[in-house]
């Protein structure tokens, strides 16, 4: 059984956020939910400002606090190293979310809006598209996983359940890489079997000095970083819209 992991090279990352977009396209995540999130941070003051980037997928921890606290076993650890969420079993208590020190979980506070990023009925857009609206759902997200036969890829993101990065389990089970790794224009993200010394991820891990996020919290993340982490005083800049709005 492979043990998947990810190596992210911060020295290569240019903070373009293409991985965030690829993740959204592959996983159809709702508005303001980012399974892959890239911090653009700034340290020190002008003129000594230093800008750094930190892509943050789920860390798929081997000692995952979210798995430990889930009251119904909806969040579970797979033998291949992935931390998955069975959205059919999730009761939406958000305990995984408060337990995770990385802030990777998203709760669906409402049913997702279709075609949320563009008003396809707008006259200008309609004149360009001829009224055609592109397909919305990725059918692979609704399939049961091969390993345990549970729905863990996210499906149609119904309200009331928690979701997060799956390492694109629907692609990984087909032998493909997660969308973020496939899309990164500078090859900063390497995914693979960390138990296989010949995998690209293992070779990258072996060849570089790496760190893990919050490694002193004993979560044993399966995501490794090459380079240096943002400093204590790092402040986030250029945030995308991250907060779901609506309701009362």
């Amino acid at each position: 059984m492979p043990k998947y992991g990810m190596v992210i090279d911060l020295e290569k990352c240019v903070g373009c956020r293409a991985c965030m977009v690829a993740c959204k396209v592959e996983n159809n995540t709702p508005e303001a939910n980012y399974w892959m999130y890239v911090f653009r941070t700034e340290e020190r003051e002008y003129p000594d400002t230093k800008v750094t980037f930190l892509p943050r997928p789920c860390q798929h921890c081997d000692n995952a606090p979210c798995v430990k606290v889930c009251p119904v076993g909806a969040r579970f650890k797979r033998e291949d190293g992935l931390v998955a969420t069975d959205w059919e079993r999730c009761i939406g208590c958000r305990y995984c979310e408060v337990a995770c020190p990385y802030g990777v979980n998203s709760f669906n506070y409402a049913d997702p809006k279709k075609n949320q990023y563009l008003d396809w009925s707008d006259a200008d857009i309609e004149s360009a598209t001829g009224g055609a609206v592109p397909g919305y759902a990725n059918p692979d997200l609704d399939r049961k996983s091969q390993l345990e036969g549970r729905k863990i890829a996210g499906s149609n993101h119904t309200k009331g359940v928690v979701e997060k990065c799956t390492f694109c389990v629907q692609k990984v089970e087909k032998g493909q890489n997660p969308a973020c790794a496939e899309t990164c224009p500078v090859f900063a993200i390497t995914f693979g079997d960390l138990d296989d010394p010949e995998s690209a991820a293992s070779r990258k891990l072996k060849a570089s000095k790496t760190f893990q996020l919050l490694d002193d919290w004993n979560t044993k993340p399966r995501v490794h970083y090459v380079g240096t982490p943002p400093g204590e005083g790092a402040r986030e800049i250029e945030r995308p819209k991250t907060r779901q709005t609506g309701g009362v």
């Binding site: 000692n63 430990k68 889930c70 076993g73 579970f76 650890k77 797979r78 033998e79 345990e148 549970r150």
Partner: peptide, 15 residues
Amino acid sequence: AAPLGTPTNEGFSNP
């Protein structure tokens, strides 16, 4: 009930 201990596989999520 579901096993106690650090979860290492799916079995820990099911009773």
